[in-house]
């Protein structure tokens, strides 16, 4: 009886009997309802809904079926199972790059995409539409009387000086289950040697591992954690009002900037409408009211330039290195 119940849920969630797991499905049909764009995305629906509604206001004839899934499931759905989607949106840049490199994406170009900076497009296949820095979120209460670290070196020495204060009170991604966490960690390891010392220190202090940014921010706000390392900045920024006791620190040595990207899978049945959506996403900069609603920072070289430490993670084959089977194994072992 219980098995049947679970099966019913799975069937309800995945009517086509997919092997990949989805987290949610939301329909935004239109009155005319001629075309329905199937979007698979790693973003929570409440983050993305304002974009869908604004998009449909401009394009009332395009209905939208929004399926949220984790980045690895998204990858599996498209590369292994040939699932039919018109648009794949993910924050896992490495997986998106692999999809494009392995030939699962189709090219698209328009005036809007060519107005994007060079680092935000790869091969007319992947289009970035947000720039989200990885930040340190600290609890103001825990840091009362202590200097807030501005670099990783500062952080390491702080942790070494006050081990008792931070024991079991540091949160970071579990790189084994979080795509974004793995991406940030691999970029960290590439950018500086201090990363390995930092992980070592954090490991000794019994750091807590999380699957998502939301939980980490919540625990920092509640005081359970003194700080959370490598949190997606946009999530933290959107929670500032909700949790007044937290503070966002952007490191000055370097700050990885993750790009949320969209691509049109080769299986797409409405590639033209997908292009309309990509154009809409690429021009988010011109819709400040909308981006305020979603708290997704649009692509803006000017905003990026405000902090010299900002380093957008470069799209391209370099990202494939960390997806290498052996490499990933080695990295996780370390």
């Amino acid at each position: 009886m219980r098995f049947a119940y679970i099966a019913a849920i799975i069937l309800a969630l995945a009517p086509n009997a997919h092997a990949y797991e989805i987290e949610g499905r939301h329909s935004y049909p239109t009155a005319s309802g001629e075309v329905t764009l199937h979007i698979i995305s790693t973003a929570d629906i409440n983050v993305f809904e304002p974009i869908i509604l604004a998009f449909q206001q401009e394009n009332p004839s395009i209905g939208i079926e929004y399926i949220s899934a984790s980045s690895t499931e998204l990858m599996k759905a498209i590369s292994e199972e040939g699932a039919v989607f018109d648009l794949a949106i993910s924050s896992a840049m490495d997986l998106q790059t692999k999809l494009a490199n392995d030939g699962f994406a189709q090219p698209y170009s328009s005036a809007a995409t060519s107005s994007l900076p060079q680092w935000a497009v790869w091969r007319s296949l992947i289009f970035a539409f947000t720039q989200e820095p990885a930040v340190l979120v600290v609890s103001e209460a825990a840091f009362s009387g202590l200097p807030v670290p501005n670099t990783r070196e500062d952080l390491i020495s702080l942790l070494r000086i006050h081990p008792a204060l931070f024991s079991a009170r540091i949160g970071t991604y579990d790189v084994r289950i979080s795509g974004a966490g793995y991406l940030f960690a691999t970029q960290d390891s590439r950018n500086s040697d201090s990363y390995w010392r930092l992980t070592e220190v954090m490991g000794r202090l019994n750091a807590q591992l999380y699957g998502g940014s939301g939980d980490m921010i919540r625990d920092v706000a509640s005081g359970q954690l003194a700080m959370a390392y490598n949190v997606v900045g946009s999530y933290a920024a959107s929670r500032l009002q909700e949790f007044p006791g937290i503070r966002i620190v952007q490191f000055e040595d370097y700050t990885n900037v993750m790009l949320r990207t969209a691509l049109i899978p080769t299986t797409a049945t409405h590639a033209a409408e997908s292009g309309v959506m990509i154009d809409f996403l690429a021009t988010l900069t011109q819709r400040p009211a909308l981006t305020a609603l979603t708290s997704l920072p649009p692509i803006s070289p000017r905003a990026l330039g405000e902090n010299n430490a900002n380093r957008p993670i470069r799209l391209g084959p370099g990202l494939l290195v960390f997806l290498d089977r052996l490499k990933k194994k080695n990295f996780l072992e370390n």
């Binding site: 091969r123 084959p317 370099g318 290195v321």
Partner: peptide, 22 residues
């Protein structure tokens, strides 16, 4: 035999053109 795939091995290919790499 173990391989530690160097980041530069693939990123150097990406630095000159936006070509697919295998």
């Amino acid at each position: 035999v173990v391989l530690e795939l160097p980041y530069s091995a693939l990123s150097m290919l990406g630095s000159i053109s936006q070509d697919r790499v295998f």
